[in-house]
Design a protein around this nucleic acid. Structure first.
Lengths: 214, 214, 214, 214
DNA sequence: CATGAATGAGGGTTCATTCAT
DNA sequence: TATGAATGAACCCTCATTCAT
């Protein structure tokens, strides 16, 4: 019975569950290992969760909600100056990657979903893809991406590049210097799909970053 | 003399195993389901495989060997003309994607690896990353990628973009027209990291593709 | 179907079955191992035996019949001279031990019987006990065993001593010189239960064995 | 705090395991039958034992240790008077037979050992044989057994006789009057191998037992 | 709330037996 | 007849879940 119980125990259970689900997947995870890592008894698991599956869903779905809210979205409040836009983009990505680093265990869970829970994986990627698509549309609307750019395809490629960057990050034992990476990724996207105007702004921003003392 | 071994049985088992492993993962897969789909009895599984785990390893490792041999590698025999190079690249990628489409079930298995078998996943991505890295070095050597391009990072981003393209492909119920996609991906890479010389060759190739009657 | 089939194959199967049943017991024995040792195919087992259990019963019961017929029985045709009697006894035991050595595998099977087949074991020991009892009665009838000797108990002890001798024999890799052993055993029985008359005859026979030229 | 472990459960499991192993042997025994007889669920077996084999080993090996400690051993503290010695011997055997009666199920297990566990059987008989041998040597040292007695062979015959007595005992539904049997057995051994001195002491002890009021 | 012993359904594996050739 | 591939019942063991304390 999901009574409130000692909130510390619930949290340690969730943390442990995250870990074990990340390492072994839903089926491979054993309730006993989760409770052992949480320093609790096997029985207490069921004071907090209805079942192993429910715990899994709770861990993942709450994360999916958070990541959904977290994803940078293009909006009316975006600055008009391209250089400024690029800066905002970089900053938001940086924040996103921070968040993903914090929650790398859960992301791992979602990426490893199989069987009856693939919908999580699909939801995750659909969300990313759509968000990315929204951005491509935004850039095109501003005349900074070429008109001929296929929105879906560009979004796919961009998503993929960033995903791989993400995997590279979590493969490291401690968080690497992601900002430099993100800048390079931005460079690829800008040159790959941007109009001359955007590319020029990007080049300026790179120079500026190096010599903005002028 | 003896009842002759049904030659299809081993193959149907492998196919069914692939399917079920792809859907459920190693642990989630049930031997009984594999044999049911293969239209055989539970016991016959063990005429062909030592254990469920061995079957899994056989399915995946033989694929890893094949894909390793299949991956296009840059070599001395590459043409010197940039346009020609781009054509070869596209062609090879196209073949690779064909192969991956044929084996999408196994790829799915490998991508979903967890627990004691993550090494499969890691081997897979390491192989891709290294191959990609080799290509970036090759392009730089030919003066077609900028000297300032970070090989590792570029390889990561390119890999990621192609991976995503791959996932987009296998998400479709029937094989989509991948060549057009690959051309766009090539465009992104060329513009993202290539020198003016390469970009010009690419633009020419695109025009040529459209109107090579001139 | 127990058709006659090639009699060699039936015999090699029986021999192999004996071996394997002796080593592993009825349940532990695997049909495949039996046929492998017989150099035949798994299926051929069922051309000769209805089932594993039936094969087991055949192997053991036919032996029980043979051993029953073989056991030396006291009769009217026994010589009257005590020394002669002792000689016949020794000779018969010697023959019996030969036979048991030849069939040590089956004896081992019977001694290891469990479960639904303990009746074999019980039949075997009952037969021995009764036979032994008959002998004790016979010796008493001839006035060569003390009147006060408890027939049942003496039979039990004698049986036990000979059984152990038998086990000592089969524990050896090749057949040891059993006759000397049997003579010692005879000595113990004679002195243990015999009247002075018998003991004197025994002593004489021992001397005679050494120096019967007198 | 927790549901307290039923202290009887381990013991009933051991008892049931003993029973079933005795009836069916290691391979023939079914875990489910053991737990059923213990009035418990199948799973609980594994709360107490690592595996069926381990349970078997535990049951038997702990018994082998106890029986080893229990076996009467000849020592310096033995009385010097032959009649006294015979009395002590009888008493110790009586105790041993009591113990064996208590543990008849386990003895049965060991006697029925086959396959990979014959070493139990062998250890058991080796221990008995050696112990018996020690006694023969002791009697010879005291000049109560003939010098010409072959120690090994005598030990074998004596062991065998006592073994058979033991089997006779456990074949009975309730414990029979073993002391009388043991006295007869002693008689056979004394007469069979003893010197006149010992035989006279034995005869005296038998008379004494009957008419020690004199 | 917390504990961990107890439960029992479920799944991997074995192997006696059958059957197509 | 002979073969050995195929079958499927049965059994050991695991582990999610329940329950008595």
């Amino acid at each position: 019975m999901s009574r409130v119980a000692d909130p510390t125990s619930r949290i340690s259970l969730l943390r442990a569950a995250e870990e074990v689900f990340a390492e072994r997947g839903l089926i491979g995870a054993k309730v006993e290992e989760i409770t052992r890592r949480a320093g609790m008894s096997k029985g207490s698991f069921y004071l907090h969760f209805e079942s192993k599956e429910k715990a899994f869903e709770q861990v993942t779905e709450s994360f999916l909600a958070r990541i959904g809210a977290m994803m940078p979205k293009p909006g009316h409040d975006m600055p008009h100056e391209p250089r400024e836009l690029l800066r905002v983009w970089l900053e938001q990505d940086s924040q996103l990657f921070d968040f993903l680093w914090q929650n790398r265990a859960i992301v791992h869970i979602i990426l490893g979903c199989q069987g009856d829970h693939v919908y999580l994986l699909q939801a995750f990627f659909r969300a990313m893809q759509e968000n990315s698509c929204g951005w491509v549309r935004f850039w095109k609307g501003r005349g900074l991406f070429g008109d001929e750019v296929d929105e879906q395809l560009a979004a796919t490629l961009i998503c993929g590049a960033y995903n791989e960057l993400y995997k590279k990050m979590i493969a490291a034992p401690k968080k690497p210097e992601v900002e430099a990476w993100l800048r390079v990724a931005q460079g690829m996207v800008v040159r790959g799909f941007g109009t001359t105007k955007l590319i020029r702004a990007y080049d300026a921003s790179v120079h500026g970053a190096h010599g903005d003392t002028t």
